[in-house]
Structures are given as C-alpha cells and as structure tokens.
Design a protein around this nucleic acid. Structure first.
Lengths: 241, 241
DNA sequence: CCTTGTCGTGAACATCGTTCTCGATTAATG
DNA sequence: CATTAATCGAGAACGATGTTCACGACAAGG
C-alpha cells in the first residue's frame, strides 16, 4: 500500500546518493525490477501482470521480489507513478514547443494521444478502471497532478480569458464546485471558464480512452482529423485562441 | 468467446418458449448464474470476479458452471451485454421524458451519470479498460449500439442543426472520418455538427469515468452542478437548444 | 572477531480457471 | 414399457497465481 519505502528501513535512501554499497545495488535492483515490470505490463496489460513472470524475467525466485516491494500492488504503484510522469513529461514538452494558446493546446492533445497509442497498457493503467482492491496512494496523486498542471499551464496563459461561447444560464451551485479547482489551477478565472477547462481536459482523456479501449468501431479510417477537430472545439470553448 | 449458445446444442432455445422441461430449467439456471455473477461483480469488480465464488454463491461446484458458460470470459460477456442494455434503457427512458432537445440531452446525461454512480463496477466493465485477454464479441457491440443510438436520437431531432459555435477552420480530412458516423447515426448533418456530437458523447462518458475512477479529487463537494454545466456546454456546441 | 542485519532460496498454503472422469437423472426411441 | 442416448452435477486433478515463512549465505559495523 505504501510503496517500497516501507521496507527499506531507516536509511531513507534519498535517491540521489545512496551511502552504502548495499543501498546502491538495492536501488539498482529496484530500478531493474520496475523496468522488467514495465516490459511485462506492456505485453500483457495491468490485470494480467504477474509478479512471478516479472521474477522469471529477472532470473529471480518470486519471493525475492518481496524484499523490494511488499506486494504486487506496490509494484503497480511504481508503474502508475512512472506512467503519470511519462505522460506528464510529453505533455509539458509539447505545450512548450508551440506558440499561441490554441496551438499549444492542440500540440499537447496530439502528444498525449500519441503517447497513449504508443503505450496503451500504461494508459489503461492510469486512466482505465482501477485494479480490484487497489487504493491509489498519495504518491500517485502527486504524479497525476503533473499532467493536470501541464494542461492548466496552457490554459493559464491564454490571452483573453474570453468567456466560453454558448454559455448556459448560470448554473446554481457551480461556484462552490469550481472554487477549489480555480484556486489550485486557474486563479482569477470565472466559473464558466474553469468549467470549460475541466470539460476540455475530460474530452481529451475521454477521446483517447474511447479510441484505445475499442469503443470507436467506425472503421479503419484515420481517427486523427476528428480528434484534432474535437480538441480544437473544446479548446476554443475554454477560451483559447 | 461465443457465449452460452455454443454449448446448448441444436435446440436453439429462442428465449421465448423453451420447448422441453430440461430447456426451461436450463434457461432459469442460466439466468440465476448471471444474476449471481452480477451480485459478485457489484461487490468485487470485474477483474476480481471469480468463477468459483459465483459457484459458491449458488451452492454449486465450479465445474458445473461450465455446463452453462464455456469460460469465465463468456460469463463476463453476458454481464457486459446486460450492463449495456441497462444503461441504454435508462438513457432511452430519460431522453423520452423531457421536452426540448437540450433538456432531453441533459436528462440523458443525468440518467447515465446516476446509473454509473449506482453501478460503478458495471460502468468499469463497459467503459473501463478492457479485461486482459478479452476480445469483445459481436453481441456486445450490438448492445453498446443501443446507448449510442439513444444519444444520437436526442441529437437527431434537434431543431436547428445549427452549426457549432466557435467552429475551427475546416480540418482537412474531417469528412472521410465523419462519414460513417453520419451515415449510421446522424444522416444529413454537416461534418462539424457530427464532430461536435462525438465530442459531446465523449465528454459524457469521460466525465462519468473520471468521477467514478477517482480522478476528480477536488474534495467532497457535490459534483453535480459542474457536470450539468459541462454537459450543457457540450450539448449546445453540438447544436442543441 | 563476532554480532547483526540483509538478501536469495525453496517449500508451503490458499486461491484461481479449466479439464477430465464418473455416476445419476432425464429425454428420446423402438 | 423398456432401452438407449444425452445431459447434468460432483469431485478430483493440473498448472498457475499472490503471499508467507524458515533457512542458509553473505556483507557491514561494533
């Protein structure tokens, strides 16, 4: 439940400079395990990820893994944070390599979709249904925040904060729901803009999930133009230009 | 892979009038199994759904279930179609019990979300990540079409077919992607409207999934106003009024 | 040097999906 | 009605899974 730190003892290896030799080889092996688990994940998917096959891949005996991860769930946690960091990184990079808020948004969307198509199992791991008895620990929500922040970053320095078009009559009770999101991500925006931003982010993950999970069976034609058009639509609704 | 029909033999019980006594008790027991599996699903979720515990719940021995379902996957298939039918039914009913295309859309959205919150495991089963080695058979895609048709029905008799506001410059290559969707669901609409409809449907599933899968950690405040506002936004963008 | 803690091994347990054989019971046939 | 054929449930078995435990081998620190 708490990740590998729970069994490393008091040494608290701060990931930068493991003091003893023991601690360093331990850190290396831990990384190797995560890497092997990542390969296994990419092949068989999250639900079928078997601790024993990860051990086989490393030439270890299954019980040896328990010196590094207290359970299969904690190994999954490591993979989850890794996946969040990966998609967050490509989102940040894409958002930084374009000019104009709408183009930055579109670049981010394309990058996220490309990453998802390249790593469908990791996508399923973080945006699919949660694994059975798994409760997301704090470390994963922190990693998940990274990609959310990348999205918010694009929206934050939009030029106009132009209120979304087609605005519905003010929904009563919108304000209290929107307040925590605005404070965390989009200070100063009005409630409709924040809502439109949430909708844009939701559309992005929803569209990629629908495609990856096989809910779009409209043939083999290239999906990209529809995706780009829809993301442009949602971006404009959120005030991008 | 093919469902229970694969082992019932040539009698082809047409679900209406099982001829022999044997066939009737068989149909009843099959229904009981699906019901017990549904309860189990609601408690432990799709990935942890155990064929043995379903058998225990019924006081049977595990191997006995194989007289009715050739594998655990086929049992999952039955649950999947059942879930699709259920959410399709509530969507149809909600869409029929309101006037005005936007209000019908909002009623449908609220009904779908309510159903999802009441049956999160079934939601995960159909809109979450697909189970490991599972390939959706034809029967499930037919059932999935039902809710899609309900959505399209609302959009179809929208008054204006008013082109979505904030329309982006015509994306090249939009037309061929949109064509099969238009032919199947929204004959006569222009490409931007069809795209906005896809976006609206995506936003609905995406928003419910995000909420159910715990990706919205903005506190315990009531999510409903934000949901309703966002769905109104996406509905208007698709030309509803 | 010797103690202490870490690590890999191997056996074990409970659970899972699935297959098989074996009586028992029911439906169809002469 | 008697006999044959089909269906069904029970139970044992196989390989696989996650997890726990006791046991040695080894390095670190006093």
């Amino acid at each position: 439940m708490t990740g590998p730190e729970a069994i490393t003892g008091p040494e608290a290896e701060a990931a930068s400079t493991p003091r003893s030799v023991r601690a360093r080889v331990r850190a290396e092996l831990t990384a190797e395990i995560v890497a092997a688990a990542g390969e296994e994940l990419a092949e068989v998917g999250p639900a079928a990820l078997s601790l024993r096959s990860v051990a086989r891949r490393l030439g270890m005996v299954p019980s040896a893994l328990y010196r590094y991860f207290p359970s299969r769930d904690s190994l999954l946690t490591a993979l989850i944070t890794e996946a969040y960091e990966a998609v967050g990184a490509v989102a940040e990079q894409a958002a930084g390599s374009a000019d104009g808020s709408l183009d930055r948004w579109l670049a981010l969307c394309r990058a996220v979709r490309t990453w998802g198509r390249a790593h469908p199992q990791q996508w399923a791991l973080i945006y699919g249904s949660p694994v059975p008895g798994y409760a997301a620990p704090q470390t994963t929500v922190a990693a998940a925040l990274r990609v959310t922040l990348a999205v918010a970053g694009v929206l934050r320095d939009a030029p106009g904060a132009r209120p979304p078009q087609g605005v519905a009559p003010d929904e009563p009770g919108l304000e209290p729901v929107v307040a925590p999101i605005r404070d965390a991500l989009l200070p100063g925006r009005d409630a409709p803009t924040v809502a439109a931003t949430v909708l844009a982010w939701t559309s992005l993950t929803g569209m990629v999930s629908l495609e990856l999970f096989g809910h779009y069976e409209g043939g083999t034609t290239e999906f990209e133009p529809l995706f780009a058009y829809c993301m442009a639509l949602s971006g404009r609704a959120a005030g991008l230009d």
